[in-house]
């Protein structure tokens, strides 16, 4: 059992938990994730390690309530326990000789972007960031990203904060102005990672994306998380989740993410009914 030490609401339906998980915290590195199961009968869902503190033995997760399991998770409070919490999974990211990096986070993608930029900043790399959300209210971790960036751009789809428009608009501008980066990291909804990667490709700038296919075990055993990268099957849980954005088959990923749409709806409806009765 893993104790929730702290709960914060970052935005409507986006929550942050600090979890007591000393072994995970000790080995965690940017780019890795955990898989959790709330209770017996629950499903296993992957969540990125948004931050970790190996001294305090804590791991931070940030999640958006999109369906049954994340909504149920959101009902838990500080002091409650999560049955299973396993990690750190996936391959940590590394940026050996970088001098300047651009990090782009869309919506919830800002959470997984944060530990990477934090590491880069600590390594003394120049960090430029572009973060965006649908509305100002939904923009998360602005202060945290700012603290690890040399320059930050904020965008909202509705113009309620920062630039009016998508993060890719700013990305285009920077590249058109001739700004150079050793690497660009794009994390967010698959469609954003797809369009972003298409924009950076003609410039030949290495572009890292973090994929979010449906996972079960997270140990390379089931193959459910397979994605096509450079024409080859890769298992995102053991080969990723970070990949070269110029080589990912995003259309396939987007289709596969819809596999259980019908079942997810049934599951959520039942959960909501049970909750209204109480």
């Amino acid at each position: 059992m893993f104790k929730i030490l702290e709960k914060r609401e970052l935005a409507p339906s986006i929550k942050l938990f600090v979890i007591e998980a000393p072994l995970v915290a000790k080995k965690a590195r940017p780019g890795q994730f955990v898989i959790l199961r709330i209770k017996e009968g629950g499903e296993r869902i992957p969540l990125t390690i948004a931050d970790y503190n190996s001294e305090n033995g804590t791991v931070t997760i940030v999640f958006q309530e999109v369906g049954k399991t994340t909504q149920e998770l959101g009902t838990l409070e500080a002091g409650d326990y999560i049955q299973d919490f396993v990690g750190p999974l996936g391959v940590p990211v590394e940026f050996p000789n970088h001098k300047k990096v651009l990090g782009i986070g869309g919506g919830l993608g800002i959470a997984p972007l944060y530990p990477k930029l934090k590491m880069l900043h600590q390594q003394g790399v120049e960090v430029v960031s572009i973060i965006g959300a649908r509305t100002a209210e939904l923009l998360i971790l602005e202060e945290e990203i700012k603290a690890v960036s040399d320059r930050m751009y904020v965008c909202t789809d509705d113009g309620s904060k920062g630039r009016h428009g998508f993060v890719t608009v700013v990305l285009k501008e920077l590249l058109e102005q001739g700004e150079k980066f050793d690497e660009i990291i794009i994390i967010g909804p698959p469609i954003l990672m797809k369009i972003g990667s298409e924009i950076t490709k003609p410039y030949g700038i290495p572009t890292m994306v973090s994929l979010n296919p449906i996972m079960v075990d997270g140990t390379g055993m089931c193959g459910g998380c397979r994605v096509t990268v450079d024409g080859e099957i890769k298992f995102a849980c053991v080969d990723g989740p970070a990949f070269d954005g110029h080589k990912v088959d995003f259309d396939e990923l987007i289709k596969r993410l819809a596999t259980y749409k019908e079942e997810e709806k049934i599951s959520l409806e039942r959960f909501n009914e049970a909750h209204e009765c109480k």
Partner: peptide, 20 residues
């Protein structure tokens, strides 16, 4: 994956269990 969803995750009890 097929067997894990059914056996370990008890998809045969869905939607009483959560794994589809």
């Amino acid at each position: 994956e097929f067997l894990t969803r059914i056996n370990l995750m008890k998809a045969y009890s869905f939607p009483n269990t959560d794994t589809p």
